[in-house]
Design a protein around this nucleic acid. Structure first.
Lengths: 263, 263
DNA sequence: CGTTAGGTTGACGACGATCAATGACGGTGG
DNA sequence: CCACCGTCATTGATCGTCGTCAACCTAACG
């Protein structure tokens, strides 16, 4: 192989030189976590706390509430009869679960870290959101981003190689965490993921994920160890991810992060 | 080959003997096509007609309208730079596209058959839907079904074998067409799909799809030839599909079809 | 008829799954 | 303190599913 690990610095500089001029973010600087801080009548919303590994609900459970994830990471998954598991997506603070589903959920939700959810009845959730136009807009845009992610995820599983899938998922998570201001800095952040989570999200075996990560490390793209991800070469990572033809500026790592109200 | 076409009848009988007692469908007997028939003020909605292979919009196009598919089949897809294509889902009459997306769509929509769409501005669409509670409910349930399909699709690509994927997709389409009363009978129906569509939807090569279909035919499960699908053994097909742990009754083939208003 | 698009089948190889062994780490109890 | 254990990460060896390449077939059409 080619020696790859000796020249990080010249790569990590200069990513997207033109990106300094990215447009001012048109997204409202709030998300559904702000229901509570914005609207006093939302205070009634009950809390639900989960420890890592606990479930918010199970596949087939009846869902009558809407949950806003306030803190922590969770994931949606679907199990097959033979024990195979597919992780559908990861939920980060500000994400809403239980919104679209009628009657019985076709999937379960499990906490990855300690989680805090705000619980609303469907009716009161919509009433609250409707009370503030900016909140409705934020919700619609959040759902649109979730759908875009779902489609990219589908494309990953259908048409990307193992290495591309791993790169793509990590890039997605870096992007989302940066948007939320949850990254230590824009290149280094904590991911509460085990290999098996990545594998179950990407339709791969643990060993394959491990090999891809080793190989990406060997090539100087990133380092993922002990729940900590360092992106060494963001441009390379973006190339490795093999994004769809046209990638929204919205989803670029450099997008303006959400500014929190009442921090 | 083995002769496969000689014994349909004994198989197609007797599927789910207990299913005669399936509950009365709680779903409202209408979908977004009924916006026009139900609400005179919706007549203003413009039409857009597409021939097979034409695009409603392309990946990256700016979407400002909501489209209700009135007739025909279409599909959403995403392309990678290297030319690989992933079909995200198929749209059937009554489905709505352009609803969730903010700004630029991360995918394109292409007509599979001749298609007729009703076009609404986002605002007027929501205004119309809001005018009739049953319509809002129908819309929410349609979206919930679409999401459930998306998750099953994701699970297919991530965790099902090629044969399972093919069986699963065909079962899904049979189910949807039956619900819409678009099947000649419940076991035989027209699918305007080429091998490449199935392959692109399932993340497989054309040849692999072809082999799976041959093998399913050899095993007496189904016959797909010349755009016509005959399900010979629905129970077997369901097993082959390797459904997720708990399958909603809602999605069973035997579910009550939508009753159309003002046919 | 020739041409083309799509479907079918075979041969072969590659990517990733599986199986297995080992290592690193943290917790627990002696 | 250290042996013991369980969990998870890592690496190697081997195997199988499915992708790729190629040839051929069929039907539609000009």
């Amino acid at each position: 192989m080619i020696s790859t690990s000796s020249q990080f610095s010249n790569r990590s500089q200069g990513y997207r030189p033109g990106a300094a001029a990215f447009p001012a973010s048109p997204t409202p600087a709030l998300d559904c976590r702000d229901l509570e801080t914005q609207l006093p009548e939302a205070k009634a919303g009950q809390r639900r706390e989960l420890k890592p590994g606990e479930s918010l609900f199970l596949q087939e459970d009846r869902i009558d509430s809407v949950y806003v994830l306030l803190e922590g990471w969770a994931f949606r998954y679907q199990d097959l009869k033979d024990g195979r598991r597919q992780i559908v997506d990861f939920a980060l603070p500000g994400d809403v679960v239980g919104l679209n589903e009628a009657a019985n959920a076709p999937y379960g939700i499990e906490a990855l870290t300690g989680c805090v959810f705000a619980c609303y009845s469907r009716k009161s959730f919509f009433a609250l959101v409707g009370r503030q136009p900016a909140m409705g807009l934020a919700l619609v845009q959040m759902l649109a981003r979730a759908e875009a992610r779902a489609i990219e995820h589908l494309t990953s599983l259908g048409r990307r190689t193992a290495r591309e899938r791993v790169a793509h998922l990590l890039l997605e998570l870096v992007t989302r965490l940066n948007r939320l201001n949850l990254a230590a800095d824009s290149k280094s952040l904590d991911l509460p993921l085990m290999l098996s989570h990545v594998a179950d999200a990407l339709g791969l075996a643990n060993e394959t994920v491990c090999r891809c990560l080793s190989s990406l490390r060997k090539d100087g793209v990133l380092v993922l160890r002990e729940r900590r991800l360092k992106v060494l070469d963001l441009r390379r990572l973006t190339e490795e991810a093999n994004l769809s033809e046209v990638e929204d500026d919205e989803t670029a790592v450099t997008a303006a992060p959400v500014r929190r109200f009442a921090a």
